[in-house]
Design a protein around this nucleic acid. Structure first.
Length: 298
DNA sequence: CACGCGTGGAA
DNA sequence: TTTCCAAGCGT
């Protein structure tokens, strides 16, 4: 505890997972040498709930257009929303834009390397702060995302799935599993996450290819099925979320302010449509103009 | 702490 | 087809 030496059980996982990562890691642009903290930060925002394959094109054009935080900070927020395209959860675009402005104002335009300073940025929570500090700056942090929670739930706890929502216990477990050495800890963070993304997957884990299958508590227990409360699957069809998506798509694709009539055409239920539009305005994703016209925020 | 927040691909 | 799920955050 005092020396953060970790548990022997977890320590036995380090070498095989690190070796597996060295041989099997995906080549991703934000992992290239010299990618920089801004590149890591942009990728982390985009990867919050959006799969890698769908992020790649948006990431490339984003960094080409705004290679530094100051470049994005100088833009209208609506341009960030438009460039976000259909990655989903467009409030992330607004937060990334606000974070870029905060970086310019508070950190001289450079992504801070301090965990607390990162955590204070808009859109940066526990996971993202640790991810940037670890991936971009090589620091020792427990980087706890859904992949890591699943890997540790299986390998150490011996259950098929982690708890439905992240818990303090997850954080503690990940902190305990962290190698003591800083640079090793940073490699472990990305490697254990990659293992969860490629091998120790949610639906059909590829245990035959897993470098720690002989030590995995879940496998050793006979791979018992998930036994917890049912996970609430979210329906999407007909929701306010879908309505917001339709409205925003109209505005994204327009080069000039659009009329209320154009927005009305994209969703039949007037009550739901108005509620969704009000919500978008309240979130700062849509700017109402005079004479019933709307645009992305400037 | 539970919920709202987009979108699309894979099983 | 339906269902599940994908590097979370803010309230």
């Amino acid at each position: 505890m005092l020396d953060h030496s970790g548990s022997p059980l977890a320590a036995a996982l380090h070498d095989p997972v690190l070796r597996w990562y060295d041989a099997n890691a995906r080549v991703l642009p934000w992992r290239e040498a010299g990618a920089g903290a801004w590149a890591v930060m942009v990728s982390e925002f985009m990867l919050q709930q959006t799969p890698v394959n769908r992020v790649l094109p948006a990431y490339r054009s984003w960094l080409e257009r705004w290679p530094k935080p100051v470049d994005l900070a100088a833009e209208a927020p609506g341009e960030a929303v438009r460039a976000w395209d259909r990655l989903g959860y467009p409030r992330r675009a607004l937060r990334l834009h606000a974070a870029a402005q905060a970086i310019v104002e508070r950190h001289g335009g450079e992504v801070p390397d301090d965990h607390a300073a990162l955590l204070a940025l808009p859109g940066v929570g526990t996971y993202t702060a640790a991810a940037i500090a670890s991936f971009a700056f090589g620091q020792r942090h427990a980087v706890v995302d859904t992949n890591v929670r699943r890997v540790l739930a299986r390998a150490l706890t011996g259950v098929a799935q982690p708890s439905i929502s992240p818990t303090a216990a997850d954080q503690r477990l990940a902190a305990t599993a962290l190698p003591a050495d800083e640079s090793t800890a940073a490699r472990w963070a990305v490697a254990s996450m990659e293992l969860g993304a490629l091998i120790c997957t949610a639906r059909t884990p590829r245990c035959a290819d897993c470098p720690i299958r002989t030590q995995c508590a879940w496998v050793l227990a006979g791979s018992p099925p998930y036994d917890g409360p049912p996970r609430r699957g979210q329906t999407y069809e007909g929701t306010d979320r879908q309505t917001r998506g339709r409205l925003l798509a109209v505005l994204r694709d327009a080069s000039a302010p659009v009329s209320k009539a154009q927005l009305d055409a994209c969703w039949p239920d007037a009550v739901q449509r108005e509620r969704a539009l009000d919500g978008l305005v309240a979130d700062g994703l849509v700017e109402p103009l005079s004479r019933g016209r709307y645009r992305l925020p400037e």
